[in-house]
Every structure is written in structure tokens, then in C-alpha cells.
Design a protein around this nucleic acid. Structure first.
Lengths: 149, 149
DNA sequence: TCAATATGGTTACAAATGTAACTGTCAATT
DNA sequence: AATTGACAGTTACATTTGTAACCATATTGA
């Protein structure tokens, strides 16, 4: 038997992780340097900006962030007056989260950057590469939806 | 002007990151639970197992890990007697890293798991999805190679 | 109606991580 | 050679993160 026909370079988890880090890097630099946001904060802002009013749990599920991360991000965004909480009418454990006007404005600016970066990525990867990646990710997302967790 | 035509669900960095985490999860559970390895440790083991003798810096470049992560992982693997260091002949700053027999054996076992998981992923994503993802990742890797960092 | 149990969210503490400063070595320049 | 700057790797410290315990509220069902 041969030593091993395993090649790390071909191993999907490895490749995915490396690619994700690379792709996240440049954009992260923008929201960190320009807006002083951490990644969980940006993700929370984006979730709320894109989906509207949500609970903390929903944000966590949506972005696959641990609930403590969400909790801290929410706190930080609230301090900055970019987010406000309102109590659920029927269930006092739950809080609805919503962007303030200032938060929505920040979100608009960030999305502008995000769109620019998307375009940049598309040229960087080539139209075909971009499309392939996108459809591959769709497959993963489908798998996620039905996976046993 | 409309509120925003930005959709987080379409944003590549977001999708990539979420997918990477999902895909890494199940396999991580295996090497954590079964072997008590951290992710940097597994990655270092895999790099050495797959590439043979390397320096710590090379491991870091290869797997895009911070050098302190590598340093700690190397220390941990060495303690476990899965890895040994040897001094470079000409340059005493550099250390060559190599798996011990026990380390190589562990690597073999882990790669067995990895291959099984790869196969599982392929069925989970479907042949087409798997291929698309793979070619998309290749595009990212090409971009990484020439990117300004 | 009153346990027992589950859930949303926070917090205390421990573990993992990155930044920056450090040690030791090498290479280039004087 | 002595000086300067660069580089491999480690370590101290501060920040970030996850785990587990927690509080408050809600739901179940005996």
C-alpha cells in the first residue's frame, strides 16, 4: 500500500477555509479601518440591514454566529446608537433588534463598499470562476439546509 | 434611489465564510474528539504529512497560519512525540520539522477519516455541486497567487 | 397551581488568538 | 571585524472567543 494518496491541497475543508480567509481579508480591512467595526459587528449590522427587524437568536442562526458573539455585537452597536432594541409584546424574554437611522446610513455606506468589492472579486476571479464558486456555494447551502447539523 | 440592492445572501465573503465553517465543523469534531487536536495542530500535522520536511515559516505560508499559531502547534505536536525538529545545517535560525513514526501513523489515520469525509461531502453536495465548488476554489487560488496580498 | 423543563439572552471564567516586543542568527556594508 | 538591518522563531500581554453557568420568562403537564 502506498504511503497515502491523500493530498491536503485537494481537501475541501482546507481549501474553503483558506479561500474564505483570503476573500474576507480585504473587505475586513475596510470596515475595520474606516468604521472601527469588528467582524461580528459588521455581520450583525448586515443581517439587520438586509433582513430588517430580527431577534438576536435569528441573527445568530442567519449568520451562524455563536450567541455570545451576537450578544456582544448587539451591545457594541447599541452603544454606538446604530441599533435599538424593543421588547416583544407577548414574550418578554425576546428583544427585537432594529437599526437606527444612523445605523441604516452606515449600513448603506458599507453596502456600497461591499458592492464595489464584489465587482472587484468578479474581475479577480474571472466570470467563470465567479459563477462556479457561486453555484458551488449554492450546493453547500442546500446541503446545510437539510444536514443533521 | 431604492433603499439598497445589496443582498447579504449574495455576498461572496459572507457565503464563503459560512460554508467554510459548516464544512469544517464535522471533520473538526473528529480530530478534536478522537485525537484531541486543535485546528492549528491538525493543519500542521497535515502540512508536514503531505509535504514532508518543512520549516515553521513554510508551514505558515502553506496553510496561511500566523507564525505564533504555528509555533504553538509545533510545540504541542513535539510534546506528543508526533513531530521532531532538526537544525538546519547552514542556518541555525531555521529548524526543519518532520513527523515522527508515531506522527506519521496518526497522520495516516486522520487522512483516512479525511478521505471518508471528502466522499461524504461529494455525495452531500452532489457531483455537480462538488465540481463547481472545486473549480471556483481553483479560481480563488489563482487569484491568491497573484494578488497584492 | 405548582413543579419541572425549555428558551432568549447575559455574564464569568478559561482557552485561543493576534500584536508587538524580544532573542538569536545571518548577510550586507563600512 | 564592527555595525546595521533582516529574518526565524518564541514569548508576554491584551483582545477575542467559546463553554458553562446563570437570570428571567415561558410552557408543559401532574
Amino acid at each position: 500500500m502506498e504511503a497515502s494518496d491523500f493530498d491536503l491541497e485537494q481537501f475541501l475543508p482546507f481549501r474553503l477555509n483558506r479561500a474564505a480567509e483570503f476573500v474576507a481579508l480585504r473587505f475586513a480591512a475596510a470596515y475595520k479601518a474606516e468604521y472601527g467595526l469588528t467582524r461580528p459587528e459588521w455581520r450583525t449590522l448586515a443581517a439587520l440591514g438586509s433582513c430588517g427587524r430580527m431577534t438576536a437568536t435569528e441573527v445568530g442562526v442567519h449568520s451562524t454566529m455563536h450567541k455570545t458573539k451576537v450578544s456582544r455585537a448587539v451591545f457594541a452597536l447599541e452603544e454606538r446608537r446604530w441599533l435599538k432594541r424593543t421588547q416583544h409584546e407577548d414574550d418578554r424574554r425576546v428583544e427585537h433588534l432594529e437599526l437606527t437611522v444612523a445605523g441604516a446610513k452606515a449600513y448603506q455606506e458599507l453596502t456600497k463598499l461591499a458592492r464595489d468589492y464584489s465587482a472587484e472579486l468578479e474581475t479577480l476571479l474571472g466570470t467563470n470562476g465567479f459563477a462556479a464558486l457561486s453555484s458551488g456555494l449554492t450546493a453547500v447551502e442546500k446541503a446545510m439546509a437539510k444536514a443533521p447539523r
